[in-house]
Amino acid sequence: MVFEGLLIIFTKERYLDLFLEGLANTLILTASSFAIGFMLGLLIAVERLYGPRILRAALAAYVETIRGTPMLLQLFLLYYALPSAGIAMSALTAAILGMGFNSAAYQSEYLRASLRAVPSGQWEAALSLGMTKWQAIRSIILPIGLRSAIPALSNELVYLLKYSSIAYFLAVVELVYAGKIIGSETFAYLEMYTLIALVYLVFSLLITRSMKKIESKIMIPGLAVTAERT
């Protein structure tokens, strides 16, 4: 079936182009939304742990709102509802931002758990040396906390790869959308979707493998993994 799907792609140059465009957009969606999610997520995690009280409450509300509603809904708000407020953007941009904002909420939770799990003695030792609060966060808490968050972040990356398929609903030409077009022209839905499923699977495994490699490279004896995504 996978093989037949591959054959179909190669029957017309247009199909191959569509398929490759889809793959490229899927990877762009995944990588960019992960990057946005990481930067915002780290900011949220640090501010929720060490920031001023009002900001903590506001960020907590943000995280809970995102986690309590579907990602699809969030993308629709950005793409279809914002233009009435005068903010319009391309479907791809809306999808990247929507996924990024969504991921920020989840990543902030993993990072917060990891940072909080850094033993309090590390804090005390850093402060006792004369470090300021932000020096201690930067040179001690973050390097330890970020390392133990790697498995959770790696799961999040795989999660985003799969959920990039939601951009289909905004007519972004990612893998599923490309498959749908080719499938509807050739009536070989089963073959196309099976092929696409396999592509996701292969990339999920690739991500998991390489993150494990990164982890083992920068892991330090005695550091525990704290957060795990289910």
Binding site: V158, K162, Y163, S164, S165, I166, Y168, V176, G179, K180, G183, A188, Y189, L190, Y193, T194, I196, A197, Y200, L201, S204, L205
Partner: peptide, 22 residues
């Protein structure tokens, strides 16, 4: 592992659009 590597949307499409071929 296979199921966890595939998006829900693709699973849905395989079942709804693909299975009729079988």
């Amino acid at each position: 592992e296979v199921i966890r590597g595939i998006p829900l949307l693709v699973l849905m499409f395989i079942i709804y659009f693909g299975l009729p071929e079988l």
